[in-house]
Amino acid sequence: MKPAIAVVDVHRTFKVHTEFYPNPSARRTIILVNGSLATTAAFAQTIKYLRPQFNVVLYDQPYAGQSKPHNSHSRPISKEDEAAILLDLIEQFQVDYLMSFSWGGVAAMLALAQRPARIEKAVITSFSPLLNEPMLDYLEKGMTHLQATDGEQVGQLVNSTIGKYLPSLFKRYNQRHISSLDRHEYLQMHAHIDQVVHMDNHCQLECLEVIDIPVLFINGEHDEYTSPKDVRVFAKHLSDCQFATLDNAGHFLDMEHKGAWLQSQAVLLNFLQAPARVMYSPRAQHGAVHAMAV
């Protein structure tokens, strides 16, 4: 079934391309939040195991993908802008669950800190509140190439670092996509990184303690940039969180190989389809789920 396409006017400021995949038998709707430099196409693997269970909402940020022709790009938008857009879409599409990938976790966490009444559960993948040495090195190199709007170098950097475990076909797609972006997209990401690296913590941990819904963090075993170890810092700030580590997976999780796809499917659906608002024990709240390789 093809998605329903709409361009949504958000606060009379941004126009956002959206894709709504309906499931007549579904009782819940989930919205997916892209990582940096990505479009709705980045969730092609994820949506395969979500559509049989949920209504699914995808969208492009105002500066990216099919939203680009509808916006002026006169200035970079902030992470707070992205969180406000997400909150608006949650209301418009009556969303129950939220799932983010990579840098989409910044907007997702800031939105959750506003305690949107509709959201029952959230899944944050390939994200960490800490900027460790590998990530800082990646960001510093990235900022140089982004400021120069050198798309070829940005693409090569992504494929040799966070994307190093991707199949060759996906690496070729990454290179083609990233190297052909518009100038404002490189400058947008440069502004985002510059904002992040000059903050004490890039998702403002002190404001997250108000989040009172179950949150699942999923990271790849071999992801040195947003590592399973670093993400556990969230356990000190969230009252109801769980952690899952996918075996033999890097940063891109379900895109990397069939085993990681099956693990992602199992862990995510088990979490989302468990009864809501159950009272977890302290061990369950801050425990880890280790996803066995399939």
Rank of each mutant, 00 (worst) to 15 (best):
Phe127Trp: 08
Ile85Leu: 06
Ala108Thr: 15
Ala107Asp: 04
Phe43Leu: 06
Leu50Asn: 01
Met109Ala: 12
Gln53Tyr: 10
Pro52Cys: 09
Ala122Pro: 08
Thr46Tyr: 04
Gln45Ala: 14
Leu87Arg: 07
Gln94Trp: 02
Leu87Pro: 00
Ser67Tyr: 02
Val56Pro: 00
Ala111Val: 13
Ser72Asp: 09
Ile85Ala: 05
Glu82Leu: 14
Tyr97Met: 12
Leu110Trp: 13
Ala84Ser: 13
Val57Leu: 09
Glu120Gly: 07
Met109Glu: 11
Phe43Pro: 01
Arg51Ile: 15
Leu110Gly: 03
Pro62Gly: 06
Asp81Met: 12
Leu86Met: 09
Val56Gln: 00
Gln61Pro: 00
Asn71Ala: 06
His70Gly: 05
Trp103His: 04
Ile90Val: 15
Phe93Glu: 04
Ala107Lys: 09
Glu82Met: 14
Gln92Cys: 05
Ile90Ser: 02
Ala108Leu: 14
Ile85Asn: 03
Ala122Asn: 08
Phe93His: 05
Leu89Lys: 03
Pro76Asp: 04
Gln45Thr: 12
Leu50Phe: 15
Phe93Asn: 03
Ala111Trp: 14
Ile119His: 03
Glu91Gln: 14
Lys121Ile: 12
Leu86Ile: 11
Asp60Met: 06
Glu80Leu: 15
Leu58Phe: 00
Ala117Tyr: 05
Arg118His: 09
Ala83Asn: 11
Pro76Arg: 07
Gly104Glu: 03
Leu50Trp: 03
Gln66Pro: 00
Phe127Val: 05
Tyr97Arg: 08
Val95Asp: 02
